[in-house]
Design a protein around this nucleic acid. Structure first.
Length: 262
DNA sequence: GGTCGCCTGGTA
DNA sequence: TACCAGGCGACC
């Protein structure tokens, strides 16, 4: 559940489930998480109260009452599952937070690529640099042009760079480019201000549509609102020509070669 | 510019 | 059995 609207929904669910509660126990169930987090750091969470839940880009930060911070990134397939403590661990449970009121939040993550880090009070969480989010008014064509001025990489690849714009993933980057009628292979620095304006509109529209229905994309109703992603060979909803799949930076890009030509 | 590794699961 | 997968960092 990796792109911004989904992480936003997850962070809200986490806030509802955790803020104000005291941690009774934390267990890391997957060796990849245990490798990354010291036992002592996990133990130190016991007895702490969750004061704040914040989202920055696709990162989630839980601030505890002693000002220590738990940093979680879902990567590809992470999600929160809220339920009663004492129940059987959900499928693909990788970490479990039990609260003293008898409730539980589980990090479920089939691919086990999600990351979790604990920062003691006074240690700043080591978040990577993040650009503005597409929905923020400070993101203007001029600012985007500045960020991309030296970037010869394909615009699709640049959009996945969270330092440029925070929150877009592989699916919505392709969708935004379709909305804007921009060739995903165009060098990022070649785009005109007019194109960048359309691109920002396309990102906002894509994210707004997704936020209306933050259910899982890739199946069910959510995928019906995708215009290009996963639709290779199917007709473009604007011009009826077939959507094509290309690979950029090792990842699939779907686009309409007619509507999105240079 | 690109590739690989991290992990596991779903699907052709 | 092989390929694909929504992220991201390390590396060439």
């Amino acid at each position: 559940m990796p792109e911004l609207p989904e992480v936003e929904a997850a962070a809200r669910a986490l806030a509802r489930a955790a803020i104000g509660k005291r941690i009774a126990d934390v267990r890391l169930l997957h060796p990849a998480l245990r490798r990354r987090v010291e036992d002592a750091a996990v133990d130190a969470l016991r007895g702490r109260r969750v004061d704040r839940v914040e989202r920055r880009g696709k990162h989630q930060l839980l601030t505890l009452d002693d000002q220590s911070v738990v940093h979680v990134h879902f990567r590809m397939t992470g999600d929160w599952i809220v339920g009663p403590a004492g129940a059987r661990a959900p499928r693909h449970a990788r970490a479990i937070f039990d609260f003293t009121d008898g409730t539980r939040v589980t990090l479920a993550d089939p691919r086990a690529l999600a990351t979790l880090a604990v920062y003691p009070a006074g240690v700043r969480p080591a978040l990577p640099a993040l650009g503005p989010e597409a929905t923020e008014p400070e993101l203007t064509p001029e600012l985007l042009a500045h960020a991309l001025r030296t970037r010869r990489v394909a615009i699709k690849v640049a959009l996945l760079d969270q330092r440029v714009v925070a929150g877009l993933g592989n699916i919505y980057a392709a969708e935004a480019l379709w909305q804007a009628g921009i060739d995903p292979a165009a060098p990022a620095s070649d785009l005109t201000l007019a194109q960048l304006g359309r691109l920002i509109d396309g990102m906002r529209r894509t994210l707004r549509d997704a936020a209306d229905d933050p259910g899982r994309y890739g199946r069910g109703e959510a995928e019906q609102r995708l215009n290009v992603y996963g639709r290779a060979g199917e007709p473009c909803r604007r011009c009826d020509r077939p959507i094509v799949r290309i690979v950029q930076g090792g990842r699939s890009t779907y686009h309409c070669a007619y509507c999105q030509r240079r």
